[in-house]
Every structure is written in structure tokens, then in C-alpha cells.
Design a protein around this nucleic acid. Sequence first.
DNA 1: CGATCCGATGCGTTTAAATACATCAGCGGC
DNA 2: GCCGCTGATGTATTTAAACGCATCGGATCG
Lengths: 210, 210
Amino acid sequence: MTTDLMPITRTLKAAREAKGLTQRALAERAGVPQSHISRIESGAVDLQTSSLIQLARALDLELSLVPRQIVPAVDALARGSAAGRKGLEPVLDAYLHNLSLLAERAARRPGGSTPLAAMRREIAALRTQHLDAEASEGLRNIAHKISRVLRRLQDRSKGYPDAPLDEQAHRSLDWLTAQLRKLNDDAMREAAEPRAPRPAYGLDEDDDDV
Amino acid sequence: MTTDLMPITRTLKAAREAKGLTQRALAERAGVPQSHISRIESGAVDLQTSSLIQLARALDLELSLVPRQIVPAVDALARGSAAGRKGLEPVLDAYLHNLSLLAERAARRPGGSTPLAAMRREIAALRTQHLDAEASEGLRNIAHKISRVLRRLQDRSKGYPDAPLDEQAHRSLDWLTAQLRKLNDDAMREAAEPRAPRPAYGLDEDDDDV
DNA sequence: CGATCCGATGCGTTTAAATACATCAGCGGC
DNA sequence: GCCGCTGATGTATTTAAACGCATCGGATCG
């Protein structure tokens, strides 16, 4: 019965060790006794959800219920983010999925498919690029903004599925597309100048915090 | 205190209602009393992890601890899979991230970067395609196989980071690449025949079960 | 109206999580 | 050798989850 939550507790323990925390250090962070953490990690207790959330948060993890369908994708994302390099491309790609949905819907509208199509093209191009740390950070910011705009459009289109894009959305999309194009151009320029015999993907092995 | 697990319980309730289940029906599936489910959904109890897992499983959800970094991506994936259309492209894209990691590593080896590079190219091309339901299903299968091969290579390369690809891996990659190329060709052919004035992205609005 | 089905709630009992505190064995360093 | 830190374990107490069961008010339908 309790064997069912072993994957969870193993993840917890692995995350703690990956962060170089002792049980006592985590205990202080999360506000629970060390003895409890020990019992949890050894699978001796069926901890309550609030405890699980507390511990997860202290380890920069988030408890989440994911549809069975996308579990492999989430695992791949998590693996990618755990192993060395940042999982930044997949982050954008996930956003892109939403964008695709919206772009398709918008393509059937009378007027306003153009800005979405343009943005879509830029993102598709960006996906094939290798970005340095700075560009990645910029991309992350833009992706968040895109996400906000898209969600707003989605919510609104529930009421008026065939409404054309309003002026503000149009401008937002154009601006975001311009930002993406800039990233694309920069990345292209970067790739065109092989400074070393090997283009030196490696960047820095770098930070690990939020 | 208990307000912290409201997102979880809300997800639970939303999933139950989305599946058209009553509390009693879910209770029977998950093997817990209906009264308990009611108290959980109303946030009156801090349920234990095993209960949470049981309920989640009965709703085709999986309890998961995701790194804070990729939470937005996971949310986007989940939203995409919840809203009508299947989240298939992101699934492949997540796999592709792993492939990129491996391809980069392999590119620094003496011998065997070629098959990985070829596969990478095929996947990058596929990402820009629109696939019908049948092709998507095929892609999902291939993606799983790719994932297996990649994980095997990753595990092995921990011991011998500079070992060239073995014969079997070479053949597996070639075969998988051929499958991908076939999908690409089919999709290209499909796109080249605009049956309607609009190329008809829409496909069918289609099924919603697992 | 009566018949159902829904989710919410009350109650009593059992089981166990969570806590505080002390202590243990194992292990590396001085 | 001793010291300090790790995680594991013991004990006693308090709190609450989980259960079974009954019941309630509220829709909805015939």
C-alpha cells in the first residue's frame, strides 16, 4: 500500500541530496522535525499532503497533478532540467503548443491571422537555434509575456469565438514578434562566427537556483 | 495552512467533473467513502499522500514533483492536453530536448555523430509539420522508442563518456531516423495537396479519451 | 407530489501522522 | 583515541485522517 508513494519519496530524497542539504537543514527550512524527514524518506510513513507540499517547496519543487497522457513529456522535461543544461527550449516549445492552437483558430477568422502566423514563424525558427545564456534568459521573459497574451485571447475567444483581434492584442503580438526576430537574428549572427574550431556550445556550467 | 493544498483539491474536483463522475462513482473507483471525497474537495481535510495518489489514479492523473523551473511548461502542456486537441507535438519536443543533449555530446566524439545528427534534422523538420491523427499516433510510438534508445545511450555514456556508438545503437538510430523521414515525407505530401481553399488545418475535432 | 440522485454534514471509532526529545551507530577528520 | 556530523530509531503525547453509517437540503424528473 505504502509502496505506491515510493516514487514521490525517492524524488524528495534525491532532490534534497542534489541540493546538498542534510535532513536537519531541510527540516529547518521546511519547519518539520528531522526525525519526520527520516521516516518519510525511508517510506515508514504515509505523509499528509500539506507536509509533502512543504517539503517540496523547500526543495524548489512543486506538487502537481499531471494528466497521464503527458507524463512522459513531463518526465523528459524534468530530466532535461535536472541534467546540466537548462530546459529552456522545451519551455518555449510548450508555450508554442498553445500558440499553435490559437494560430489555427485564428486562421479561420475573417481578419486577423497575420500577426499570429508571423509570430509562429519566428518561434519555429528560434527552435532550431542554439542560444547562449543571455539570449535564453531573454527568451524566457518573452515566452512568459506571450503566454499571458495568449491566455487572454483564449479566454476572450470563449465568448466571441469569431471576434477579430483587437487593437491592443495586435500591437502586443507585433511587439513580441519583433523581440523574437531580434533573438533570431542575434543567434544567427552568433552561429555564423565560429570562434573556436568547435563552436563551443558549452557556455558556462553555471548557476542552479531559481 | 490548509489553504496551500487548494490548487491540488481544485484540480481533483475539476478532473472528476470533467470526466462526468459523481463523488459516489469516484468513491467506488478509488475505493474510498464518498463522504471523504466531499470533505477533500471542500478543503476540510489534509489528506494523506496515498489517498491523493489513489484518487488521482482513478482520474487518470499522476502525482508528480516538478522542478519549479519548468512549472510553467508543465502547466502549458497540461492546458494543451486538457483543451480539446492532443498535446502531441510538445511530447515529441520534450524528447527532442534529450536528443539535443545527446547529439551535442556525440558531436564531440571521434566517430559517431552522424546518425544522431541525421535524426536530429528529421525531428526538427517534423516539428514544423502538421500531422493528422494517424501520423500523430505513429509519431508517439516512435518517440517512445527514441526515448528508450537515448536513455540507454545516456546511461552507458556515464561510464565511458567518449565511447563511440556501438553497432546496435547505430542500427536502432538509423531505423528510427528512417521512420521519421517517412513521416516527414507523408506530411509533406499531405500539405502539398490543398483540398480546400484553406489547407484545412482543423482535422477532426476528435475523441477526448485516453 | 413522490422518487431519485446529487453533494454536504454529523457522529463515533480506529488508526496513524506529527511533534518533541533523546539516543543510537556509522563515518571522516583532527 | 575523541569529536562532530550524518541519518535512523525509540517513546510518549496530541492531533487528525479515514472509515462506516446515517442523514440532510437541494435539484431534477416523471
